[in-house]
Design a protein around this nucleic acid. Sequence first.
DNA 1: GTTGTTGCAAAGAATTTGCAACATA
DNA 2: TATGTTGCAAATTCTTTGCAACAAC
Lengths: 137, 137
Amino acid sequence: MSTASEEELRGAGLRATRQRLTVLEALRDRPDAVTAQGLHQELRQAGEPIGLTTVYRTLTSLADAGMLDTFDRDGEQAFRLCGDAHHHHLVCEVCNVIEEITAEEVERWVGDVAQRRGFTVTGHRADIFGICARCAT
Amino acid sequence: MSTASEEELRGAGLRATRQRLTVLEALRDRPDAVTAQGLHQELRQAGEPIGLTTVYRTLTSLADAGMLDTFDRDGEQAFRLCGDAHHHHLVCEVCNVIEEITAEEVERWVGDVAQRRGFTVTGHRADIFGICARCAT
DNA sequence: GTTGTTGCAAAGAATTTGCAACATA
DNA sequence: TATGTTGCAAATTCTTTGCAACAAC
C-alpha cells in the first residue's frame, strides 16, 4: 500500500524516500512557515537522521512542484505546505502562523490593473501581515 | 543652500554625506529595483568611489527610514525609491521595472479579512508580477 | 541493476561587524 | 571638536555543489 504522502511525492516525480516523507509529514503538522535551517534543527532534535543539504533540496523540490508556498523571513527563505488552489496569506509576525485566504477582489484587481498597463501577468501575491488573536493577548 | 536630497537625508536623521547623496541620486534615476551588489558595481563603473559596505548600510538606512521599498529578487534584496503614500507594485520580471499602483480594492479587502480573522494588521503587500509591454515585444 | 538520492565536506554568495581613519555638523 | 560615517578585511550566515556511498523502483 501507499500513504498519501508517498503518492504526493511520486505525483511530483520524486522518489518517496524516508527523508522526504519525514519533511512532508513535519510540514503537515505545522500552521507556520519554516526555514530549512530551522526544520533541520527540529528534525534532528526529534531524533530524525537527516542532513541539512537534504532538507534544503527537499524543500526546494517541493516548492518547485507547487506543494509549498515560500516566504522571505528576514533574508531567509521559509516554506509552508499549501493547498492546490491559488490563494493569499494572513501572516502573524509573532508566531509565524499563516492562514490561507482566497480573494476574488484581488484576482479581479490584478486583471484590471495589468490590462490597463499592458502587463502580461505571470503571477501575483497579496499578503497581510499582523498579529494573530492569540499573540495579541 | 541645500539640495532636496540633503533635506531628505537629514529629515531621516542621517548626515548628508557624499556617498549617501550618490546612492540617493542613483536611485532617483531608475525605475527598476537594484541590489546592493548591483548598485555598487554600477557606481564604481561610473567612477564613483564608494565601498560595498557603505552601499549596504545606506540602502538599509533609507529603507528603514521608509524611503525605499524592498523586494526579494531571487534570494537577494533589491531596493527602489518609493513615494510616501502606501501603494502596491507592478513588477516586470524581465527588465525589473516597477510601477507603483494604488488600490482601494486591496485596502478594503485587507481590513475586512483581518477583522474577520481577528488579526491586528501591521502591514500588507500586493504585488503583481509579469512582463511589461516593452519586454513583451 | 539502474538511476535517483543522500550527506558530508568544501565552495560560493550575500550580508554584517570590528575598528581605525575620516568627514560632517 | 564631537559624533556619525566610511571602507577595508575578516567573520557570519544562508545556500549550493562535488562526489562516493546508498536506497528506491
